[in-house]
């Protein structure tokens, strides 16, 4: 066990954790922030996506020891993020979710995409969202919501 200082959604946090623990489980179990989801543990589904220093990151495979002092942003902060709020609103307006379990990760990927590429093409949406699995397969509405958010961000 070791102590780690984290900056999560702008707040300083200290946790005492095994250095090999993935960030996902530190968020969920130590910090009780369960918006970030465990889906596969091998970066194959994207449900655990957070932003680390602004980069969309699969938290399920990032050992806390490799985090350093990079700030973390999670789904819980998206309502207060300029792009995040627009994306969430688009998701709600398009009635995207079904079971909803993957959607935190979908939204975190979409926000990262739109921050860098505000007007993505269909291909860019497919590629950037290509690693986020939705078992309900709500993809038709995910596409629509990303496009709607893109229009709103003009």
């Amino acid at each position: 066990m070791a102590k780690f200082q984290l900056t999560v959604n702008g707040q300083r946090k200290e946790v005492n954790a095994d250095p090999t623990t993935p960030l996902l489980w530190v968020l969920r179990e130590d910090l009780k922030m369960t918006g970030t989801k465990y889906g596969c543990g091998v970066s194959a589904c994207g449900a655990c996506t957070v932003h680390v220093d602004g980069v969309a990151t699969r938290s399920c495979m990032l050992p806390i020891s490799l985090l350093g002092d990079r700030p973390i942003t999670t789904i819980e902060a998206m309502a207060n993020d300029r792009v995040g709020r627009v994306v969430q609103d688009a998701w709600v307006e398009k009635d995207v979710v079904q079971c909803g379990y993957c959607q935190s990760g979908q939204i975190m990927s979409a926000v990262a995409l739109l921050k860098e590429t505000p007007r993505p093409t269909e291909t860019q949406i497919e590629e950037s969202m290509g690693g986020n699995l939705c078992r309900c397969a709500t993809y038709v509405r995910i596409r629509e919501a990303v496009q709607l958010a893109s229009q709103r961000l003009k």
């Binding site: 699969r58 990032l62 490799l66 990927s109 995409l113």
Partner: peptide, 16 residues
């Protein structure tokens, strides 16, 4: 965008 090599791969191996 949103799906980079560094989305998973850190600056060193993550053996755990």
């Amino acid at each position: 965008a949103g799906f980079r090599c560094v989305t998973c791969h850190q600056k060193e191996n993550a053996d755990s």
